[in-house]
Nucleic acid binder design. Structure first.
Lengths: 254, 254
DNA sequence: ACTTGTCATGTTGTACGATGAGCATACATC
DNA sequence: GATGTATGCTCATCGTACAACATGACAAGT
């Protein structure tokens, strides 16, 4: 019996990356955050002074200050020079996040696409009400850029996004622009999955079908028909969603 | 002519809270963040050393360290003692935030409501496709709770939200639930403005009108009609938006 | 009585020096 | 080639000092 084969250090469980240790700043952030979210430190209330926290936690002022800077960046705390640090009044207003880890699952991608559908349908309706002539021109240019990309045998990913972005801009509502930018971070995995499952000839036909849908969306916006724009955008995004729903179902069967 | 009446300091425009100055840490955070989100500092790439940044920006190491702590808290940067600070690999996947400061403006409230419209319209359509019998029951109970609150002379704020929340749950998509929770943080100012501008008798009539709209939404969902659900929800939220658009226009004229 | 000015005290913001801890690389040894 | 050691670099923490800001108390003026 070889000794090395029974050593626990040779098992796969041990041979994985070592997690870096937490530093003191992280520890202080977590403690203060727990006090805030746990309700012991109410919105608007004043945190202990730096000196008091130093004494109570046994760390230097640097660690306290860096922790407060971190909490400030997270929007949990406001500081006023000469006065003190305070729990932010709107502390419960946390950001909306999509965990990138969940985007590895096709089912989760579909969920995000459903959310996107709602936002983009409403954007199309608002754009039809509000788009200026230059903004309509921009959409038209974006459509032409998609055409050119398809002719070159490319997938028109960036150009596709630019078209949708132009619609968001035409809403004259910065929240739509920002939300689409936010969602833009999560579009890439979708595109790569598309590339992986479509043959070149079928892919071009597919892209041209999508471009037809784009044309219908644009026509409704150009002609100032919000209802038509919504319907066209909804149909366009519904088709993409169905494709991914089918993929998700196939993978679930494996 | 009294001198004080012509002094510019007596006008309402000057007599508002003075914005505290940005500190150096904030300045450094914004600069580094711009480099990261602007693409000059790629995910995984190493930031300049603390000494280099001190020299380049003309600030002390304290300011640099506090800025890096803030960026770390926002997930943009990872630090390794002895090695350096690095742009986080998944840096482009940022949270979606609504700045609470902007919610003091009625125009911005309308923007957020427009975004919410898109999400809730799609949620209503999906709920009509997917709601189970218990979930429909939950919506029905929520409607009854609104009725009871109105009869008591209350504004049914929480009950109203519960009805919309039940719809989001019936989508079987956690992103809708999470987004509505996220938006829930911003609903309160809307409710308070509503209270300030409606007389008691008109308010009850208004709430009953809204409840009629809720009934139409619920009927479409219960009967499994996604198109009708979307139209009813859109009409419901459009009316709220128009009210606030009118308020914003009135305030702009003052 | 009310308003303005001054001063003392407290608190955050910034800067700097020092030491320790962790990491990567270079070089020596086997 | 593998292992051990030394060195230099960089972040983490601590401590001191001064600047800037804010608040409250008290005095002086009207």
């Amino acid at each position: 019996m070889d000794e090395r084969e029974s050593s626990p250090l040779v098992t796969l469980d041990a041979l994985r990356p070592v997690t870096p240790p937490r530093n003191l700043t992280r520890e202080v952030v977590d403690r203060l955050q727990a006090e805030i979210t746990g309700g012991n430190l109410k919105p608007g209330s004043r945190l202990p002074t730096e000196q008091a926290m130093m004494a109570a936690m046994g760390v230097s002022r640097t660690v306290i200050r860096e922790a407060v800077a971190a909490l400030r960046a997270e929007g949990l705390v406001l500081t006023r020079q000469g006065v003190g640090a305070f729990v932010a009044p709107d502390v419960l207003q946390r950001p909306f996040r999509i965990d990138p880890e969940t985007m590895g699952s096709l089912g989760e991608i579909v969920h995000v696409m459903e959310l996107r559908t709602g936002v983009e349908v409403e954007a199309a309706g608002l754009a039809a009400e509000r788009a200026s002539a230059p903004e309509k021109k921009r959409m038209e240019h974006a459509l032409k850029a998609i055409d050119r990309s398809i002719k070159r045998g490319e997938q028109a990913v960036d150009q596709d996004f630019a078209f949708h972005f132009a619609i968001a801009e035409a809403t004259h509502n910065p929240q739509f622009i920002r939300f689409l930018e936010f969602l833009g971070s999560f579009i890439i995995p979708r595109q790569s999955v598309r590339a992986a499952h479509t043959e070149p000839a079928g892919q071009r036909s597919y892209l041209e079908t999508i471009q037809g849908e784009h044309d219908r969306i644009f026509a409704a916006i150009r002609d100032g028909k919000p209802g038509d724009a919504r319907i066209a955008m909804h149909a366009h995004l519904m088709r993409s969603r169905e494709r991914y729903s089918r993929l998700a179902a196939e993978l679930a069967r494996r």
